[in-house]
């Protein structure tokens, strides 16, 4: 495997020094790293909020509808990430389609108001100011959600599918309402799917660099951009590999936590059964 070689480069140049790792943990780089983690966490959380209802609807719909919905969620997954990000630009930019639509809406509203001789009162602003949807944190998070939400839906759907419907019926029979059933019966059952969904969304989010590069502005750089810059323009390879190794460590830690969690969970479950 090609992984062993990487440390060796640092080894040759810096003789096992931790200078690069120390550099990564102070100042701008640490802030960026922290910010990437925050952005990824927000994205993961919002993905979860979107994915649960959609997965619910898919798993409870009829077989025909289900297959159509599944294919339509999987299809964008196969189209190129770059193309999908690019397609978002056309919508989000200042003269993009969303702002155009909003402007049309504003004009028609103004026109409507002018019938009632109200246009001069400036109820809805003097003129239309386009929303700045591009080159900020909003666009980055939106792009990340747009790209990675299918990764959250599919694992949740797969575990939802396995839940015995009779259990839910039994829960309602015993007098629980929707809310109680959801939190006491469904949530524990789909927690495995949720954790794998979180991992599938969080890790690529943390390492993504196309989306912040194309959709983000100066203040929404993520760790991926910095790594890319170390290799392309700044030409500081050892530092870049140190940064990317930090990403790999984070990945490994997350996977380790998940492993321990699943072990504990299964042990608790077994104790509960016996």
């Amino acid at each position: 495997m090609s992984y062993g070689q990487k440390v060796d480069i640092i080894d040759i140049d810096y003789s096992w020094s931790f200078i690069n790792y120390a550099r990564a943990t102070d100042g701008v780089y640490f802030i960026t790293l922290f910010k990437s983690v925050i952005i990824s966490l927000i994205t993961t959380f919002l993905c979860l909020l979107i994915a649960i209802p959609v997965a619910f609807y898919i798993s409870f719909s009829s077989v025909r509808v289900k297959s159509i919905l599944l294919v339509s969620i999987l299809l964008p997954l196969w189209t190129n990430l770059l193309i999908r990000t690019y397609s978002l630009i056309a919508l989000l930019r200042t003269k993009g389609h969303i702002n155009n639509a909003l402007e049309n809406l504003w004009e028609s509203a103004n026109y409507l108001l002018s019938f009632f001789r109200l246009a001069n009162h400036n109820f809805i602003g003097e003129s239309f100011t386009p929303l700045s949807l591009m080159h900020n944190n909003f666009s980055v998070i939106f792009g990340l959600i747009y790209i990675y939400v299918p990764f959250m839906i599919i694992p949740i759907y797969l575990v939802l599918e396995k839940i015995d419907r009779n259990i839910l019926e039994a829960s309602y029979d015993l007098g629980a309402n929707h809310k109680i059933t959801f939190f006491k019966i469904i949530m524990p059952n789909i927690s495995v799917g949720i954790t794998s969904g979180i991992i599938l969304v969080f890790i690529p989010c943390l390492g993504s660099f196309i989306i912040p590069e194309l959709l983000g502005g100066a203040d929404s750089q993520m760790i991926g951009n910095i790594i890319e810059r170390q290799f392309k323009s700044a030409n500081d390879w050892p530092f870049g590999s140190a940064l990317s190794f930090i990403l790999i460590y984070i990945t490994i830690i997350i996977l380790g936590v998940r492993y321990v969690y699943s072990k504990l969970y299964s042990r608790l479950y077994q104790r509960g059964v016996s």
């Binding site: 992984y3 070689q5 060796d8 991926g224």
Partner: peptide, 18 residues
């Protein structure tokens, strides 16, 4: 599993190293 960018970079460094 690992982020794609790490994969790309490791390849770059690997080809450079050998």
């Amino acid at each position: 599993i690992i982020p794609e960018i790490c994969m790309g970079i490791s390849m770059l460094v690997f080809f450079n190293y050998i």
